[in-house]
Design a binder for these strands. Sequence first.
DNA 1: GCAAAAGTGTTGCCCATACACCCATGC
DNA 2: GCATGGGTGTATGGGCAACACTTTTGC
Lengths: 230, 230
Amino acid sequence: MATSQSSLVTNFAVAVDLVILTIRDGRLHALTVRRAVEPHAGGWALPGGFVLDGESLEAAALRELAEETGVTGRDVHLEQLATFGDPDRDPRGRVLSVAYLALAADLPDPQAGSDAAEARWTPVEELPGLAFDHDRIVAVGLERARAKLEYSALATAFCPPVFTIAELRRVYEAVWGATIDPRNFHRKVSKTPGFVTPTGQTTTRDGGRPARLYRPGDRSVLHPPLLRNG
Amino acid sequence: MATSQSSLVTNFAVAVDLVILTIRDGRLHALTVRRAVEPHAGGWALPGGFVLDGESLEAAALRELAEETGVTGRDVHLEQLATFGDPDRDPRGRVLSVAYLALAADLPDPQAGSDAAEARWTPVEELPGLAFDHDRIVAVGLERARAKLEYSALATAFCPPVFTIAELRRVYEAVWGATIDPRNFHRKVSKTPGFVTPTGQTTTRDGGRPARLYRPGDRSVLHPPLLRNG
DNA sequence: GCAAAAGTGTTGCCCATACACCCATGC
DNA sequence: GCATGGGTGTATGGGCAACACTTTTGC
């Protein structure tokens, strides 16, 4: 049992690592960086870094996100994923990794941070083996994203600020890897209260008849959920 | 940016804190302990303690669970909940708390651990204000448990190893705080593949006609989910 | 027999699917 | 006009709530 009346033993280093997902060309991509330093120098890993003194975990995640992608917190959905703390997960010592999941609309090509030689968007089915336990972290992030699409309005986080229902549908298709009937999807989304709110504008950027534009709605949990494949 | 090529800076203490839920007399209860030491000496808090050198997070959670309740890992459902790391959440310094959620069948009255003067089961609606940010942690744990009942077989974790469908129903009623039609619930559960498996035995411990006994099934995610209140 | 709890049958409604069909634009 | 994608109407089938009804025990 820890003797908590003695002075505090600070024997952990704490990092945040990010599973950053976006959709490019109709496919789900994750951001990976090539490590410039040991351990695993030259290998691919998730973007991340150590939490600074006096910095909250979420602030550290937002800082790393901005460093790697240039996006600010307003443009992304960011949520804590899980914490990985096996004693031997990092050869340097006892390093805890608090993983975050970030979802964003299509982003410009990444700019490498100072400890990453290179950064790249990779389709999630083609990810190389990642350093540390980052493969496991990515798997948890993907499953979280897929599951949350069903019962939350998370999909709007993958869309630009104003979007069409067809664009929202393509998010579901990319994340779930399935095709969805456009007509039923349209009805379902517009009938779910608080999912999307119309702007009154239309666009023809996808060709064909003008599509109505929407903004994300005020509700984050959907009733009823959009179930995949009943 | 953290300079990761320099030697590792270990400036965090890491604790695990437990939201342990059970059902007593048809109501959802959480385990709280009275703190024996500063800070917040004499106040109520969640059971927990510091992670030891070389110990995994889950091992630490299991150890604390056994210390506080005497139950071993086989008898409970244990899952990581979230990590709380605000810089000022603990006056002693930078302490990260990895919170775990534990669900168990009705347990004997608790035995106090060595750093807790007293431990007590409290109905979740009657919890006193807890020390540190433990109120927030409990809220996250409750919401997780309520949500997971819908789409997972988690409810069986609140039941004894062998149980009737009526006992399973009372779990849902206690956690959701709602009444459920016994007939429809029975049909729904027995029709959901992998939720429960019959033992062939029956019991009359609830009175009336003998009820068939079941064990937890092999499936942890339910298709389709049991939705609360449409 | 009577009370109590388990379990089944049945009905009506809602909702999801599948798909025919119309609408509004660019070319 | 024709292609392209947006959006609506409608039939059909399955699931779920509601509730009448039967079964099997203890007393």
